[in-house]
């Protein structure tokens, strides 16, 4: 049913997006080549795997963020949800004395709940997503600070660090987790009715509603998913850095959104792919790493990322319009 709605212009959009990903891939290859030339440590398995470890948190949150932005929404609260879940994980375990496994599970539940609250207000009460998540950006961070009283939680048992610091078959453990969710998300978005409904909502929400798509339910689901993934990211993060603080994940929402947008998902909704997002996440991480290795300082690096963000979108947009004009 959803495909019927999405059909007009579907072919165009698909081709256009493919273009963006090709461009992004080209940029990525060019960047890797240049960086590898500038620093011999860059293109080594050890370094690349290590970068894989570092990008997992942003990557996990970028997947549902792609879904949300495709529907024309946004979630600014992911960094705060991550902070809240990290704190609760520690508090449940240390202050309430729960087994660590149960504490992790509960923290994930809270993450999902935090996302659900966003989704519920956005759909049932009609608060615009930007405003809702702007409010919860402050609210959830505030809860994290209030609950923890700004104290950090430390002293986790060794097994807990397996996820964030360990390896499985020679690859950082958390990277498997990200790969798993990457594949799932890509399949869901490309091959399921649910995925096609997301595009339909983003293209024309009213039309989607009239064609019988459960718009509200779907939106609540993706915001809940976003919260859950932020919780998962919190777990990975706490396990990686072995401590919990209420200021964790501050400002991460912009990194996540940058990666998604760089990946070609239109902020106006209706277009975007998981592959693009993955390329965006990887490109940013490799740029940060490669520039640092070749002697560019942190402040220079963020300038380069800013320029590449604007240019890549600009170029792919121009190419798409040119192609559109030829038709």
């Amino acid at each position: 049913m959803a495909s019927a709605v999405a059909a007009p212009g579907h072919q165009d959009r698909y081709a256009g997006l493919k273009r963006h990903e090709v461009i992004l891939l080209f940029v990525l290859i060019a960047a890797v080549a240049v960086l590898a030339f500038r620093s011999e440590q860059f293109l080594t398995t050890g370094n690349l795997l290590n970068q894989g470890r570092l990008l997992v948190e942003v990557g996990l949150m970028a997947l549902p963020m792609t879904f949300i932005i495709i529907t024309g929404g946004i979630d600014l609260s992911v960094g705060s949800i991550m902070g809240l879940c990290a704190i609760l994980l520690g508090v449940f375990w240390q202050k309430l004395g729960l087994p660590l496994g149960a504490a992790i599970a509960l923290a994930l539940v809270v993450g999902a709940l935090a996302g659900f609250v966003n989704g519920w207000f956005i759909t049932r009460v009609g608060v615009p997503p930007l405003i809702m998540t702007l409010a919860t950006l402050a609210l959830y961070r505030g809860l994290a600070e209030g609950i923890s009283q700004a104290r950090s939680v430390r002293g986790y048992p060794d097994w807990f660090f397996g996820l964030g610091q360990g390896e499985l078959w020679g690859v950082p453990t958390q990277l498997w987790l990200l790969l798993f969710f990457f594949v799932i998300s890509a399949i869901v978005l490309t091959y399921t009715t649910f995925g096609r409904s997301l595009y339909a909502i983003g293209n024309n929400e009213v039309a989607a509603r009239f064609s019988g798509i459960p718009v509200d339910g779907i939106k609540i689901a993706i915001y809940t998913m976003s919260g859950l993934m932020a919780g998962l990211a919190a777990w990975v993060f706490v396990s990686r850095v072995s401590t919990t603080r209420s200021d964790m994940g501050t400002g991460l929402e912009l990194d996540v959104i940058t990666a998604v947008v760089l990946g070609g998902t239109s902020i106006f909704g209706g277009t975007g792919t998981i592959l693009g997002t993955a390329l965006g996440v990887v490109l940013i991480q490799l740029l940060k790493n490669g520039l640092a290795l070749s002697g560019v300082k942190g402040d220079g690096t963020i300038v380069v990322i800013g320029v590449i963000l604007i240019l890549s979108i600009l170029v792919s947009d121009l190419l798409r319009r040119q192609r559109g004009a030829e038709h």
Binding site: V261, G306, I313, D317, R321
Partner: peptide
């Protein structure tokens, strides 16, 4: 050039 404002200004923020 019709680049979305969020893209341009996110980039500008970094620059």
């Amino acid at each position: 050039l019709r680049v979305p404002s969020i893209v341009v200004t996110l980039g500008m923020l970094s620059i």
